[in-house]
């Protein structure tokens, strides 16, 4: 307990920047759930694909650790574009290949769920076994070893203190991650709430039949939300490589689970809820690890989730994607 009280500022800062990444991934769950009432468990692998896209890009460009700022910033932006394209693309591909045929046949929700889990496993194995065996020789540094324990991605930015208050240091990485995540989320929020496409999304979320009668192309809206969720996961993947700096084929599982938890905590289907849920989860985890040991952080995180859901079954902010005003 003393460790936490003595260094509460530092733990809070760390927790917030950890939660910001959860929040970006959580958006993918929340968008899809808001519109389709479907939990897309393959979303964790959409994030994983983003990290691999960045690793491949860096390998091709031969990016070294801690490049000069004039190199680092364009590289990060390029990484964002590549990861956004890769993650958005894979999310769209999953939708078209796996969910669309089920939707056409009006399959019950359980079938979607099990399909999502299946797709998730397939992607893990493709990246863990198939790609290393088939194209590993083309990309030796990336896929060289089957299911490597951990593939490292060079850090683009060094941790340098930006602001120090007492024991608490806010460093460059904290600032980059939190600012980038918040900017992405504000952008998405504006897109959903202020644009014509966003209105279509909200309309389908609220009442698919009526929206269709009013001339909203439901199919296009569904594609749009998968792509948007994927792009956010791609952004999360970039921030992940900047902050954590490693990947492997199974990396999505834990991140996905946490992001899903964050989405439920904030109110699944609610964009702002994802941000709140993600940051709360990140902070709770770091506090829990500080009080006891890191091994207990999941226990505390899920206890908090259960307690919150007892009092607010729809999450902290409620499920409101459909109910937002036009």
């Amino acid at each position: 307990m003393n460790t936490l009280i003595d260094h509460i500022g530092q733990y809070t800062v760390d927790g917030v920047s950890k939660g910001a990444i959860y929040a970006l991934v959580a958006l993918g769950y929340t968008l899809v759930y808001g519109v389709l009432r479907l939990i897309n468990f393959a979303h964790s692998e959409v994030f994983m694909v983003g990290t691999f896209a960045i690793l491949v890009t860096y390998t091709v460009l031969d990016v070294q650790q801690y490049p000069a700022l004039v190199v680092a910033i364009p590289t990060a932006l390029l990484g964002l574009v590549v990861a956004g394209l890769a993650s958005g693309g894979i999310a769209l591909a999953v939708e078209r290949a796996a969910y669309l045929p089920l939707r056409r046949k009006n399959a019950p929700p359980l079938i979607f769920l099990i399909t999502a889990i299946g797709v998730s496993m397939i992607l893990v194995e493709v990246f863990g076994l198939l790609l290393p065996r088939r194209i590993g020789h083309l990309l030796p540094e990336v896929f060289g070893r089957e299911r490597a324990a951990s593939l490292s991605v060079p850090y683009l930015f060094e941790r340098r203190p930006v602001l120090t208050i007492g024991d608490t240091t806010i460093d460059t990485i904290h600032v980059i991650v939190v600012v980038a995540a918040v900017v992405m989320m504000i952008g998405l929020d504006l897109f959903i709430n202020r644009t014509r496409y966003g209105r279509g999304v909200r309309a389908v979320a609220q009442d698919p039949q009526t929206a269709a009668l009013m001339g909203v192309n439901q199919d296009r809206v569904i594609m749009l939300i998968f792509v948007l969720g994927g792009v956010m996961a791609g952004a999360a993947a970039l921030l992940w490589t900047i902050r954590i700096g490693n990947t492997q084929s199974a990396i999505g599982f834990v991140v996905g689970l946490k992001a899903f938890t964050a989405a439920v905590l904030g109110g699944i289907g609610n964009l702002r809820g994802a941000l709140l849920g993600g940051i709360l989860l990140g902070v709770v985890e770091v506090y829990a690890a500080a009080i006891t040991a890191s091994i207990w952080e999941d226990v505390f995180a899920f206890v908090i989730l259960v307690i919150v859901l007892m009092f607010r079954p729809t999450g902290l902010l409620g499920e409101s994607l459909g109910r937002a005003r036009a």
């Binding site: 460790t3 003595d6 260094h7 530092q10 733990y11 760390d14 927790g15 950890k18 024991d167 954590i244 490693n246 199974a250 990396i251 599982f253 834990v254 991140v255 985890e285 770091v286 690890a289 500080a290 040991a293 890191s294 091994i295 952080e297 999941d298």
Partner: peptide, 21 residues
């Protein structure tokens, strides 16, 4: 001083903060 992490963990913020302390 000690910390215990878990298998499959990838984010070690709390551990790093403890080491710094």
């Amino acid at each position: 001083a000690t910390d215990k992490v878990q298998e499959q963990q990838t984010i070690f913020d709390a551990t790093v903060a403890k080491i710094q302390a």
